[in-house]
Nucleic acid binder design. Structure first.
Length: 419
RNA sequence: GCGGUCGUGGCGAAGGGGUUAACGCACUGGUCUGUGGCUCCAGCAUUCGUGGGUUCAAGUCCCAUCGAUCGCCCCA
């Protein structure tokens, strides 16, 4: 059997790739307006970076990483998310030495070893931003607003923004105990998953679809925030309102990465089957220090490209397709075919999109081909035209045909197509 | 890691033990000695994901395996 692509990966072929290019170009353009600059970091890093950054006990690190030993016996992992690498680079390149907040964005592949399903792949792509160097809640709000604006501008409808505060480490430790106490009496009635969540990540029980009945009246983390956390969260909400970003408080929102502090948020939209999260992020004060830098607070987000495209498709959004051809050239006979090659190049140098046949097909087949390419013009050159120094030019849309002189052919069509 | 469904030409899809594997789309050629989109005609799978088994006989039944897809966990 022939070789197939690895499970959970995809080939993005012409026809599909245009959609990616559209979404990516919108992302870059938006980042420029918000003054975020691109950063490209390796797709693999030392495994330790993710263990320290993402967190030893997270699902991502525990069971989803592509980890291997390289020839120097170093443990290497394909990046499962973007933040750790960006923060590592921030530290390694001493970007904290710069006077302003570092506002960075990235677009690229991430890797997680999971069973694929709708909207989930082993190699998937994220567009993300990171703003490092400030605790200002207006920065949290800006990050959330950028994501929201992005969805709006590429044409996704009905995006919901959910926010929560997950406090700081000491708030969270205290809250964890509260919630364990709350569920302790019903612990044995909880579903199998929640029984393990009880130890590992009790906040997740609140998210469970099966055990909702036991969740009523459960303490929320928001009720347990200390003064500093509460103030920060309130300010973020004020700024979001000022920015015109509608949001919903979700006291049960918990993210799967350990590094979040204070603000956590997710974007949701329907259209990907069982999955509705299309992006998320939060603040990560403490992560930079954990990775070994002089401590700096940060906030960021990551949006799933595949999920964006799935939602766009589900909503029937029209995404720019491939561009039609300006000119298709047909040469009849050896002399004409030779001349066609030069003419084709002239057209291309003039900036037009031009093509010819490479399969020695009949005139009729070449016409069909031009039609498939949606060519605006077909140039037909035969012996009789060649003798007169002319070329027959047919406009496919109208069927009208004219004769142009070979010397001004390229310039004439270029002028028309540019206009 | 676990569970459901599915794997037949470039694509969509019939066939559910019996001699030559429907049909549609696309494609190629002809109808039209140098002009596309329409019509009509012709051509286009020594073979049904892979491996093994049952049988006189296997796309068709059984097992395994790989893959796709959807779901669980978790998330993008």
């Amino acid at each position: 059997m022939s070789i197939q692509k690895p499970k959970g990966t995809q080939d993005l072929l012409p026809g599909e790739i245009e959609k990616w290019q559209y979404v990516e170009s919108k992302a870059r353009e938006l980042c420029q307006r918000f003054n975020y600059r691109e950063i490209r970091t390796p797709v693999f890093e030392h495994t330790e970076l993710f263990q320290r950054g993402v967190g030893e006990t997270t699902d991502i690190v525990e069971k989803e990483m592509y980890t291997f030993l390289d020839k120097g016996d170093r443990s290497i992992s394909l990046r499962p998310e973007g933040t750790a690498g960006v923060v590592r680079s921030y530290v390694e390149n001493k970007l904290y030495g710069e006077p302003d907040v570092s506002k960075l964005y990235y677009v690229g592949p991430m890797f997680r070893y999971e069973q694929p399903q709708s909207g989930r792949y082993r190699q998937f792509h994220q567009f993300g931003i990171e703003a490092i160097g400030s605790v200002d809640p207006s920065l949290d709000a800006e990050v959330i607003a950028l994501g929201y604006t992005f969805y709006r501008e590429i044409g996704i409808k009905d995006v919901t923004v959910e926010i929560n505060s997950v406090g700081n480490p000491s708030v969270r430790a205290a809250y964890r105990e509260h919630i364990q106490q709350f569920f302790a009496p019903v612990k044995d009635q909880l579903c199998k998953d929640c029984q393990s969540r009880y130890e590992r990540n009790p906040m997740r029980i609140l998210d469970c679809k099966i055990d909702q009945k036991y969740c009523e009246g459960a303490p929320t983390i928001v009720e347990h925030l200390d003064e500093e956390c509460r103030t920060h969260f309130a300010r973020v909400q004020q700024y979001l309102t000022a920015l015109g970003v509608p949001f919903r408080l979700n006291p049960r929102l918990v993210r799967g990465l350990d590094y979040y502090t204070h603000t956590a948020f997710e974007y949701k939209a329907a259209g990907i089957g069982a999955i509705d999260t299309i992006g998320g992020g939060g603040r990560y004060n403490g992560l930079v220090g954990q990775i070994g830098g002089q401590d700096q607070p940060g906030v960021g987000l990551a949006l799933g490209m595949e999920r964006i495209l799935l939602v766009l498709q589900a909503q029937g959004a029209d995404i720019p397709a491939e561009k039609p051809l300006d000119v298709y050239l047909i040469g009849l006979g050896e002399a004409a075919e030779t001349r066609i090659v030069g003419l084709l190049h002239e057209l291309r140098l003039e900036g037009l999109t031009a093509e010819k046949d490479y399969q020695s097909r009949k005139l009729k087949a070449q016409m069909k081909s031009a039609d498939r390419y949606k060519a605006a013009y077909v140039g037909i050159l035969g012996d009789n035209e060649l003798e007169k120094g002319e070329i027959a030019v047919k406009a496919l849309a109208t069927g009208e045909q004219e004769t142009l002189s070979l010397s001004e052919f390229a310039r004439t069509l270029a002028a028309r197509q540019r206009g």
